[in-house]
Design a protein around this nucleic acid. Structure first.
Length: 595
RNA sequence: GGUUCCGUAGCUCAGUUGGAUAGAGCAACAGCCUUCUAAGCUGUGGGUCGCGCGUUCGAAUCGCGCCGGAAUCACCA
């Protein structure tokens, strides 16, 4: 791998040593790509050297520039504007770079598990009482893309899902089914299991609200009515039976959860995400109590007169936090303490990343602080990848108000729109229904995935269904289109019996512009991995695609008569295609060979 | 009230160890299909980077203080 940046960096060190007899701090040497409007390829900022050279920026720049031209093999010439030393790399070295790409099997990414670092990424983590919605979509896409990104940086990654399969919420669905839906199954109703169970959850809520209203109408205060409604009492009763392993409740629970799982499985498959291991809360919710016990013995935690257990975090600017209820049962935090400890014991990973919405920022802040106070040395390796809410033009999504966007509906609608759009443009005329289906599916999913992944995770984002379906501009389909065009060129080239070989023709400015974007790929992957930001990849691949489209319009490829130039352009297109595909795959997005 | 996060063009968003004249897309307007895929390309207009002060040769980026918005601070998960 040719790295101009490193070469220039080292040469600059030598220059300063020779010219000013000074050893320079590494981070004082700033090398960046030269901006479009100036001549040159890389730019050294000379301001930081002025204290050493004791000369003005122009003189200092000139001295360093002269040194580099004489002593650094790859540099052809330089110019100085203000305090910026712009260096031009000899064209033949750019050519070498391009030629080297075909022999590097994994340009931009690190070989699998080469870093020796192991990550566990927990994402998705749904409840089993209702289908997945738009918020889960952002979670799933981020979690999956993040895992790919870590792998591309050479880390080992274990993807896990913690399914919240127990609790009062699922009892509500179960109860509603018992009362108003006995006998109805996904098969009999033709409904996806998770949707069916979700319907009963909604039904419960509806009837529950009716009961509350009846009670408040008869003069009972709202708060009391919410607790005394017969339905909620029955649901709580059912939860107790579940915890007592009541046979009837357990088998109902197993059946209905089974429906939900097959529904989820379906949605995950459509979204193209997967897991290496699935945890069920019903099997982990008792974990953590032993840890709390130990914490009590150590004096890190304390017990109140009513027997509830707490930790005082006020010294760290947080509050007091409950870890065990007065009746001895555990809370969410307790479980998370237990599961984290269990996972580190079992997998010995270096980091555990939770992909969870930003409404739980406080929870994870507390989690790692508690772990630290309890003396676990891996506490600092618990990371929370926090993402913002997805808002709709009409406001926030609220399941109660029916303003949620269902994940399955959304996927179907994106694919349908892709289909309509493609037909209208006459893009699919020559394909079989099977091929059409496959292509249209890829396009619809790309539109959805890219729309969500291009936004910085930590920001709240606005999801406008209309705009998300737009396939022009900065969208997934546009990037796919660029790729499909490249493939089209190759099909034509092979019909013409044109083989791509190493290039010998010196690239002009137009080819160089594209080549420079390609050059950046490895550093983008590394930065994105460091910052846990799939969005950095998304924005890069858009830039590359856009650059290619301009190139495509400005530079004839197959029609170019000069054989060397034609080969160079083909070669460039080939590498561009590879990187687009690789980038999109990191995001979990497929690219079609034609569209 | 405490803590955390956000504020960049009419709208949606990039801009990451502080660097040159802050960039895209959408929307608007004007062009380009006998030419490798027009889901494309070119051009025009559009900005007090929330506000102020500070650090610096240099600030959208760092610090402090305001203003505006979001989340959270449960014996819920």
């Amino acid at each position: 791998m040719i790295e101009f940046g490193n070469i220039i960096h080292n040469a600059t060190c030598d220059a300063i040593k020779t010219l000013y007899d000074a050893d320079i701090n590494n981070d004082l040497i700033q090398i960046q790509e030269t901006r479009q409007e100036f001549e040159g390829d890389f730019t050294i900022v000379v301001f930081p050297f002025l204290k050493i050279s004791k000369k003005n920026p122009e003189v200092t720049g000139t001295e360093i520039g002269n040194y580099l031209v004489q002593n650094c093999e790859i540099i052809e010439k330089f110019n100085i504007i203000k305090g910026f030393l712009n260096l031009s790399i000899k064209k033949e070295h750019w050519l070498n770079f391009l030629n080297s790409l075909s022999t590097i099997e994994s340009f931009g990414t690190q070989p699998s598990k080469s870093s020796g670092t192991k990550f566990m990424v927990e994402y998705s983590s749904p409840n089993t009482n209702k289908p997945l919605h738009l918020g889960h979509v952002r979670n799933n896409l981020l979690g999956y893309a993040l895992s790919n990104l870590l792998e591309a940086n050479g880390h080992e990654v274990i993807k896990v899902n913690l399914i919240n399969d127990r609790g009062i919420h699922i009892c509500k669905s179960m109860l509603a089914w018992q009362k108003w839906g006995k006998g109805i199954t996904p098969e009999s109703s033709g409904k996806k299991g998770d949707h069916l169970v979700g319907d009963f959850y909604v039904k419960f809520d509806l009837e529950y609200k009716k009961q509350i209203k009846e009670l408040t109408d008869s003069g009972i205060p709202q708060e009391e009515a919410e607790k005394k409604a017969p339905l909620i009492i029955e649901a709580q009763d059912m939860l107790l039976k579940w915890e007592a392993l009541d046979e009837e409740v357990t088998s109902l629970w197993k059946m209905m959860n089974g429906w939900v799982y097959s529904g989820f499985e379906d949605t995950y498959k459509k979204m193209g995400v997967n897991f290496d291991r699935i945890y069920y809360e019903s099997q982990t919710y008792l974990l953590g109590k032993a840890i709390v016990q130990k914490g009590l013995e150590k004096g890190v935690l304390y017990q109140r007169p009513d027997n509830s257990v707490w930790i005082d975090l006020t010294a760290d600017g947080l509050d007091e936090k409950l870890l065990l209820r007065s009746d001895g049962t555990s809370v969410y935090m307790t479980q998370d303490l237990g599961t984290a400890a269990q996972r580190f014991d079992e997998y010995h990973m270096d980091e555990l990343i939770y992909v969870v919405g930003n409404e739980q920022n406080y929870h994870f802040q507390v989690l790692s602080l508690v772990m630290e106070k309890l003396g676990y040395d891996w506490a600092k390796n618990l990371k929370h990848m926090s993402y913002g809410m997805v808002e709709l033009p009409s406001g926030k999504m609220k399941s109660r108000e029916g303003t949620v966007v269902d994940a399955d509906d959304l996927v179907d609608e994106m694919v349908k729109t892709a289909h309509d759009m493609s037909m209208e443009l006459g893009k699919l005329d020559e394909y079989t229904t099977e091929q059409t289906k496959e292509i249209v599916n890829m396009i619809g999913m790309a539109a959805l995935k890219y729309f969500i992944l291009k936004v910085d995770p930590k920001k709240n984002m606005l999801f406008d269904p209309k705009e998300s379906i737009d396939f022009n501009g900065n969208t997934g389909p546009f990037i796919q289109y660029s790729y499909a065009r490249i493939q089209s060129i190759f099909r034509k080239a092979s019909e013409l019996n044109l083989n791509i070989s190493d290039s010998e023709t010196v690239p002009s400015e137009k080819e160089l512009k594209l080549l420079k974007v390609i050059y950046r790929f490895p550093s983008v992957v590394a930065d994105a991995g460091k910052n846990l930001s799939p969005a950095m990849i998304a924005n890069y691949v858009y830039e590359l695609s856009k650059e290619f489209n301009q190139f495509y319009h400005e530079c004839p490829i197959l029609k170019e008569e000069d054989q060397g130039l034609r080969n160079l352009r083909l070669h460039l297109s080939e590498q561009t295609g590879k990187i687009i595909k690789k980038s999109m795959n990191l995001l979990g997005i497929d690219v079609p060979e034609r569209m």
